[in-house]
């Protein structure tokens, strides 16, 4: 019987430091057939596994045109991620997946795209941005609003210049605070403080939002206020996951499994379950 709980093996091909506690890992499946078969949509996640420690659900941060290499951006916050941080280039890691439902790139075709990310929330959206970059004619205007706590907490900073060069696009960067002595040429404030300068019009737009849940709730509300319908907004949720395949129950939110029905949800489907109680 096929066993979805048994991890496959992947090489760690590269490690890029993003912030003081965040790295991006480039993984390559050990098995050639798996490498070939490993197809995914940005927004999906994988289960990374270290024998003796356990597993953690981590979102994929690359886009599928990456030649079978998988990027995953990890913040060192728990037992598994801490153990991953102790791995070096060339080491092996357990991998299962990809799982879940990613961003609806097909639905987004021919529409203006508004990407709003907070902190680590940019990781599952990086694949979307790079996908649009590589398939520019399929999509309308691209607008990125990215906020982080401080400039030092921003991830993928080395790609912003490339993103700025994407035709017909706008990028807003904002932080909550700038530590003394740090140079910062962009905005200070919440991601929603960028809304007045926003170019995207709700008429033919689709919004992809990812960040802390409290931020997403607020952003979704603000988007509705400026004319977005709740079926034009997509958010990606974080929940505790132990299996990734809709069995362990931990990621339930109302009548949905985040691992199986999400993690990317149309806001209209999930709205009533994430209301503050």
């Amino acid at each position: 019987m096929e066993n979805d709980y048994s991890p496959n093996i992947a090489f760690i091909r590269d490690i890029t430091q993003e912030t003081s506690n965040t790295n991006t890992y480039t993984l390559e499946p050990y098995d050639k057939i798996m490498k070939k078969k490993f197809s995914y949509t940005p927004g999906q996640f994988i289960m990374l596994s270290i024998f003796g420690i356990g597993e953690a659900a981590i979102s994929i941060s690359s886009d599928p045109s990456n030649n079978g290499f998988i990027n995953t951006t990890i913040r060192n916050v728990g037992n598994v991620t801490n153990a991953i941080f102790r791995l070096k280039k060339g080491d092996l890691i357990g991998i299962r997946g990809p799982y879940g439902i990613g961003w609806p790139l097909d639905k987004a075709e021919n529409r203006d795209i508004l990407i709003i990310a907070g902190g680590m929330g940019l990781a599952p959206l990086r694949g979307v941005i790079n996908h649009i970059k590589n398939n520019r004619d399929k999509y309308g205007h691209l607008e990125i609003i990215y906020g982080a706590r401080t400039p030092g907490d921003m991830i993928f900073t080395y790609e912003y210049d490339d993103w700025k060069k994407i035709m017909d696009s706008t990028i807003h960067l904002t932080v909550d605070a700038v530590p003394y002595g740090i140079k910062w040429d962009y905005r200070i404030g919440l991601v929603t403080s960028c809304f007045p300068g926003m170019k995207t019009h709700p008429r033919n737009a689709i919004a992809f939002v990812c960040g802390p849940e409290i931020m997403m709730r607020y952003v979704a509300k603000c988007l509705e206020n400026i004319g977005f319908n709740d079926d034009q907004i997509y958010i990606s949720l974080e929940r505790r996951m132990k299996c990734g395949i809709g069995k362990c129950g931990h990621c339930q939110i109302g009548q949905k499994y985040v691992c199986k029905d999400g993690p990317v949800f149309q806001y209209s489907d999930i709205k009533k379950f994430i209301r503050p109680l």
Partner: peptide
């Protein structure tokens, strides 16, 4: 793949 004890 396998957890390692910290170097001491």
């Amino acid at each position: 793949m396998f957890v390692e004890r910290i170097n001491m």
